[in-house]
């Protein structure tokens, strides 16, 4: 947990260009604040995130990784939800093998207008990660 701020955890968000990116942008527009140590990388679809990228983020010192998934709104098809869930489960297994707490990877469906849901999820994840580092 290198470089953790005392106030907020360092969280990498994988968001999607068409669905969750607009929600995260709108959170800013609505001045819904969340910790500034939350960084977003956009991908086309949440079901295309490689576990290796997530593990790389932990390796580099991120406290948590949050997947702002497309959910049922995915423009690439309904299978996105299942496939994103599958890759998260797969990554959780690898994390267990690597002695990483699986709860440090969290996923939630964030629709294009779910700004408040995003901020709520991120704040709660931040709290969880901070508590985890203190215990």
């Amino acid at each position: 947990m290198a470089g953790i701020s005392t106030k907020s955890a360092r969280i990498l968000v994988f968001s999607t260009e068409k669905i969750s990116d607009p929600a995260i942008d709108m959170a800013g527009l609505l001045k819904l604040h969340y910790p500034p140590t939350v960084y977003t990388i956009s991908v086309p679809c949440s079901s295309g995130i490689k576990p290796a990228w997530i593990l790389h983020a932990f390796e580099k010192g991120f406290d948590g990784v949050f997947i702002a998934a497309d959910g049922s709104d995915c423009t690439y098809g309904e299978s996105c939800t299942v496939k994103t869930g599958r890759l998260v489960s797969m990554t959780h297994e690898i994390m267990k093998e690597k002695k990483l707490e699986p709860a440090r990877l969290r996923m939630a469906a964030i629709c294009s207008v779910c700004s408040e849901a995003f901020v709520k999820q991120i704040k709660s994840f931040n709290q969880y990660l901070l508590q985890m580092t203190q215990s």
Binding site: K31, H33, P36
Partner: peptide, 14 residues
């Protein structure tokens, strides 16, 4: 802007 200055207008250093 949307993901920095507006989202974190409460924390200029951050």
């Amino acid at each position: 802007r949307e993901q920095v200055s507006w989202a974190h207008s409460d924390n200029k250093t951050g």
